[in-house]
Nucleic acid binder design. Sequence first.
DNA 1: AAGTTGACGGATG
DNA 2: TCATCCGCCAACT
Length: 115
Amino acid sequence: MTQDERNQLFYSIIRCVPHGRVATYGQIASLAGLPKHARHVGVALRKLPAGARVPWHRIVSSRGEIARRAANSGRDCESEQYGLLLDEGIEFDDNDRICLERYQWKPRGEVRVRG
DNA sequence: AAGTTGACGGATG
DNA sequence: TCATCCGCCAACT
């Protein structure tokens, strides 16, 4: 499996995360059949071309925090992700964290891949 | 070829 | 709950 194939796999799963819900890096990796590859989900998102139809902002850490290092990829993703999630009706607590119990995506049945 | 790095995660104190 | 420390693994140096 090439790096690009792996990235596409992650992207196709991330595209399944519905509006108003979030998923964690580790969750996406597991759904892809690649547990313990949470970091590579981040790698894939870092390489995501601007304008791709992938809801990258719905991916948060296992603690419900949004990524800060995303600023490395050129633009200020931290505030951008924050705003996009707010637009979807997702609320943050006083520590800028998302309540995963409430907003984490729980896929029903098989996740359709390569759609 | 070997060491470093990273949009991470879980265990531990 | 927060801080730290490891485990992880492929891309990059």
